[in-house]
Design a protein around this nucleic acid. Sequence first.
DNA 1: GTAAGAAGTTATCGAATGATTACAAGTGCA
DNA 2: TGCACTTGTAATCATTCGATAACTTCTTAC
Lengths: 222, 222
Amino acid sequence: MSSVIITAADKTLEKAPDKVPEIATRMRSQDRRELILGAATAVFGERGYFGATTDAVAKVAGVSQPYVVRMFGTKEALFLEVLERALDTLMKTFARALTDTSPPPAGLEDTPSLRIGRAYADLLVDRGLLLSLMQSFMLGADPVIGPVARAGFIRVYTFLREEVGMTPLEADVFLAHGMMMNTMVGLRMADLYADGDPCAIDLLETALPGKLDVLLDSSKPA
Amino acid sequence: MSSVIITAADKTLEKAPDKVPEIATRMRSQDRRELILGAATAVFGERGYFGATTDAVAKVAGVSQPYVVRMFGTKEALFLEVLERALDTLMKTFARALTDTSPPPAGLEDTPSLRIGRAYADLLVDRGLLLSLMQSFMLGADPVIGPVARAGFIRVYTFLREEVGMTPLEADVFLAHGMMMNTMVGLRMADLYADGDPCAIDLLETALPGKLDVLLDSSKPA
DNA sequence: GTAAGAAGTTATCGAATGATTACAAGTGCA
DNA sequence: TGCACTTGTAATCATTCGATAACTTCTTAC
């Protein structure tokens, strides 16, 4: 069954008639768009911009390849939209962590920097999100993606400086640890952790304190 | 003139007869190999594994595309050799910095960690070297490149722990700042620095203290 | 109910790219 | 000098991939 549409014949296979037809219904293009963007985030994060194919995105999203291209125009436009969405999510997560009035996890300090740091680590649950951004950071030489990637990084830095109130050095240290986390995820270092590699264990436990469970969980389904 | 060999006709165009024929001579394959590996390091660093083409490598090296492929077998084998070479250079640079008995630059402290840190920053002069490694770190999901990339990272970590004597936390901080530097280079953040962007200036001056001149120089010819 | 539009697909094209083959030209040694 | 070996290229092939076109099917407003 290559089609996303459940035909009448399929319906009889699935269930008795007159049963939850919403799976047989077409999606609104807006919903399908979100679905494809999610799939694209995962694929771009895993293989990078050039390594990702529109066909792989389509397969993950469960649609045909031409549909992906037609909806976004070009692969490049799709990637740019993925980046924009990822950055928006990142910034929203940071902003929420700053203004969140709930108490910090038991026994942990509660400074703005620490709240933001925990928020960043929370984004690891969506593996593709941070990795897609990181992949764009490696394409600074690209005439189209490069400027967007730089602007995105600057946007995060500016937030840390002006909204969180970090000094340049504090922001540098924060971002450096973020890049380190991204690298650990990009390397699939959790694979070696699962194998019991002592170096990998040291690395991950130091680089991702308290967030290892999240990373290990998200590495399983891959 | 697409050929690397200066033909008789070219020679007459270039110079009077009987003039420095060594530019017209063939290279030993070993030398040509080094030339291609250098070109490949630059191209892979700039575009990543999938974005790089054997043809681009060939053009930079000044040879034909089939020659590149035949000499290394496959693009993948070429990339793996680039990674191995880059890591060897990295480790050799670290080892030399550790055992080097020359005094540190005027007014700077001289601890093993600081020496290694300066050595890492020195590697920025070859922009492709660190970027090729970084590109591999983003391909941890690749069945062939992934394990090699993880092993390479572990090798650096082990060196820091066992040879330099760093604690896990010290190694983590060191590597985090290394990833930050790599990111700044990958983003071509120096372009914004040259434009006078105040954020870029802050970022680079904090992330690459004292090494900005190197980065700005190496960004010009690109 | 039916016509218009939205949602999606199949088929296919052209360009790019890694790889292969066959061939040409320089180099060195007897 | 000539002959084997090395160094290198031009031509070309098979795939892959992004993109386009044309068509089908569902939905919905009247």
